[in-house]
Design a protein around this nucleic acid. Sequence first.
DNA 1: TTGTAAGCGTTATCAG
DNA 2: CTGATAACGCTTACAA
Lengths: 340, 340
Amino acid sequence: MKEHAVTIYDISKQAGVSIATVSRVLNGSDNVSEATRQKVLKAMEESGYTPNAFARGLGLNTMKTIGIMAADSSDPYLAKGIYFLEQLLRGEGYDCLLCCTGYSLKNRIASMELLITKKVDGIILVGSNFVYEDDADNKYILDAAAQVPVMLLNAALDAPNVYSITSDDYTSMYNAANMLISEGITDILYFFNSRSYSGRRKEAGFRDAMKAAGLSTGDGTLQFYRGNREDVPAMADLLEHVWDQGHHFEAVLASDDTLAISALKFAVRKGIKVPEELSVIGYNNSMLTACVTPELSSIDNRQETLCQHLTATLMGVLGGNEMPKQTVFAGELIRRGTTR
Amino acid sequence: MKEHAVTIYDISKQAGVSIATVSRVLNGSDNVSEATRQKVLKAMEESGYTPNAFARGLGLNTMKTIGIMAADSSDPYLAKGIYFLEQLLRGEGYDCLLCCTGYSLKNRIASMELLITKKVDGIILVGSNFVYEDDADNKYILDAAAQVPVMLLNAALDAPNVYSITSDDYTSMYNAANMLISEGITDILYFFNSRSYSGRRKEAGFRDAMKAAGLSTGDGTLQFYRGNREDVPAMADLLEHVWDQGHHFEAVLASDDTLAISALKFAVRKGIKVPEELSVIGYNNSMLTACVTPELSSIDNRQETLCQHLTATLMGVLGGNEMPKQTVFAGELIRRGTTR
DNA sequence: TTGTAAGCGTTATCAG
DNA sequence: CTGATAACGCTTACAA
């Protein structure tokens, strides 16, 4: 199982040329006569030669690899992003080194260093939770950016060699709240589970829409869920608790489809009719929207578009071009059965 | 941004020792006096030295990387597997190169070769869809196994240097069907969307349970869904169509949670009560089970356990130990609200 | 305990 | 168009 691997020397011998020539045909150089090229190609074919990626990496100082970091690659939303990115990058000839970092900063710093050590050509941070509120905590991003370009999917940070691609979460949430308000709904519960960069943008959008309509956002209008991100029943419990405390609401505007799904579960428990008595809007427009009845209205943040743009930008940067530091795409509310 | 990288030579000079010594402290060799070790460590610290991974890879012929292949890393079930594996492998000091191959054999062969070319230390195929019914189609796995160990998560293939870790899908499905039958349910619809290795095992389990009970599995008892794996409404359409054709059923036994969810959607459309008039059982025990009301009964195939075992086995193989070629774990039906 | 020097398999720079 | 030959940065016998 470990025969002596065939190298460029073997090929050069077998084809009766120098290793330089072999290397040339390997890299598609023009300066090779068709005759020799064929000789070399034939030798490669016959001996089943595969160039050694490490040696090549050493020479070229790259192995065409991009590091992808995500808190949890099984989170449906992040998983989609990773999937799109992997496909796109592969199309550009790059492989992806995946790093699931969890949510602890310490872990993230370690992962970042590891990727740098492995000499990836660029790093993509998938998910807004990588950008912290406290600037000091974002130092690890700047440090990495000193070595390789860092791309932020769904988060923004203004720093040298970091590029941000985001959906306009603020406006999306503002518009969604506004739509509810324009239907005469005033008791809106804002349900969220993250204070990440985009989490804060969303929240601001909601608050501003309420303020613009002269509505209060006091006492329990915003509910933060801090438990497990997959535990839908626990989320429903929280809503039930709020309701039982006497805080009734006519709509739930959630920062995530999972939270919105839990509102539906809550409604069933309480016998509240959706959407007649309760409107529900989620975020991310994930496959979960189709899993429930009625189907969930949700804000689509155009992940695939963001990923395409991110990849194109990264390729531009790696190609030595000047690229836009921040790009923002508009989101869109997809209306389904949980809104009137 | 591209200062001449600091190498082992710089350190050796700065510490006043040879590069061999530097290399020794780098690799934690015993044969270094504490005094010199400190000198070297200090030099490294001061100059912010990071060993070049490519050079090291060239010398050691490994970069401690495992290739992970999956059809679609955003499929919730596969995503979970990838997540567990990545965590476990990182714990062992390995990084993961992710390859989303889709379902076409051609693509898979290419991805496989690519991973081999990049000189990964092992390859993990996540998902039973990598093992085809026609043995000739599995040649790409054997070819890869000639170079590096290949691990199969949830699929089995008997070949040199390939190791299979599976859940006993046959028995799980057999038992689930049996449970329904023992409750007096005879009109069971088996709803599936894959003819992969584990897909075939599940189907066989269902068929055998029916046969053992003297029940027929003719005319439409098994329904194959061939559309998009996320399109729940389309799945519900199929069930509705079957029902409207006059084939009524008292239970849906699904090969996947998504399919089971669609049965719930179908039931709501038709006003059929679950579980009183219709029992539903899914497979994978994913987070989807908690998203619906009533919550979905589902078969847990112990992904995390499988992943742990897979990782341990792979580490054993890489360590040169003899390891079991095939391991089977039992699954378990988690009963929730969609079964009586 | 430490140093010298020979790889590891490419790429790239020069001459020819 | 082609061939020597020097990097690339590290590991590892083999000497000392």
